[in-house]
């Protein structure tokens, strides 16, 4: 199985390649990708250099153009696709059907992957994209069990890629409106979930309070491990109880289920984290590369050291092994 690794900057890209990535995915410095954060991502020149660097080391480069085009401004996405193709991207990761159609029509040889943002999570939807746009791979959402993935794997005519480590989005990606509801900006249209422009941290006595727009997301007592200020991982008063309505501040780690994922027909394992620093990328990629080469009994200690880097300093298998509260 391929190890697909994130990079938000050229420095992180080189770390991912050197640490043993089979492919690195990245995006341009604009709203065409779902990690449109300040100071992050690649200029055209940086992407060109990154692709050259990766090629020399036998590593592929995937370019994420996985936001949805705005009517009247399609040219932003079309020119990003044209540049990614021209610069030699090994695959484009797309979510918008219109952009998929455009790429298929204008660049028939370009390999196309279906982004998790496309919300293709059943065989009918996936096979439609394979037949309509010759999609070669689908990235499945983090809402499916391994059993679900196996059932999909038996029926689809393309490769399957799943998230195995990193940030845990628990929603139907591409359709989640929580960030939009709170801030007016979303990963789907603007490339930002819980945008930094709307985030504030303040001290209240010894507590740290995180706020998103006008919402208080969480209150962490002194020394309590913290998480990102997203609504889906917020701690709220619900009736008489205070707790996490959707999910705790926690990261995904399904590396203990590699064999089951392989049996389910998965051909690529994806690490989330284009917004993370190069130190994180280097540590996670090199560790997971080691995990893949280690017998199941020896993987625990390797994975344990990644927990300290994770949101809330905790990891979970999430929906891959669904247990309702």
């Amino acid at each position: 199985m391929e190890l697909i690794c994130p990079a938000g900057t050229p420095a992180a890209f080189r770390e991912a390649v050197d640490a043993g990535a089979d492919a690195v995915y990245c995006g341009f410095r604009d709203e065409t990708n779902a990690r449109n954060f300040p100071g992050l991502n690649f200029s055209r020149d940086e992407l060109r250099d990154a692709i050259v660097y990766a090629r020399k080391k036998g590593c592929m480069t995937f370019v994420a153009l996985n936001t949805f085009m705005r009517a009247g401004n399609e040219e932003i996405w079309y020119s990003a696709a044209a540049d990614a193709v021209r610069l030699g991207a090994d695959a484009l990761i797309l979510a918008d059907f219109g952009l998929m159609a455009h790429v298929r029509e204008h660049y028939p040889e370009q390999r196309l992957h279906v982004s998790v943002q496309a919300s293709a999570s059943n065989p009918e939807a996936i096979n439609f994209l394979v037949e309509a746009f010759d999609a070669k791979r689908v990235v499945l959402p983090r809402t499916l069990t391994i059993g679900d993935i196996a059932r999909i794997g038996r029926k689809v005519k393309c490769e399957i890629e799943v998230f195995v480590f990193g940030g845990l989005c628990v929603m139907a990606e591409g359709r989640c409106s929580l960030s939009s509801y709170a801030t007016g900006k979303s990963p789907n249209m603007n490339g930002v979930c819980s945008p930094a422009s709307h985030v504030r941290y303040r001290q209240d006595g010894s507590d740290m309070v995180s706020e998103l727009g006008t919402y208080t997301i969480n209150r962490f007592s002194q020394g309590e491990a913290a998480g990102y200020p997203t609504l889906c991982k917020g701690r709220f008063d619900i009736g008489d109880a205070r707790g996490y309505a959707f999910e705790d501040p926690v990261s995904l780690d399904v590396m203990g289920e590699i064999e089951a994922l392989k049996d389910a027909g998965v051909s690529a394992l994806k690490i989330e984290g284009r917004q993370r620093g190069k130190a994180y990328v280097a540590e996670v990629v090199s560790t997971l590369r080691q995990v893949l080469a280690t017998a199941p009994s020896g993987r625990g200690p390797l994975l344990a050291r990644l927990r300290a880097l994770s949101e809330g300093q905790k990891t979970t298998v999430g929906a891959y092994e669904k247990r309702w509260r």
Partner: peptide, 27 residues
């Protein structure tokens, strides 16, 4: 981010600016 999760680092003020600075230095 890991240092923030472990509470070994505090950030204040404009988070967009801070994020941009973090990414600039990291690269």
């Amino acid at each position: 981010d890991a240092l923030f999760f472990s509470r070994d680092l505090k950030v204040i003020g404009d988070m967009e600016a801070m994020l941009a600075m973090r990414n600039a230095l990291d690269d």
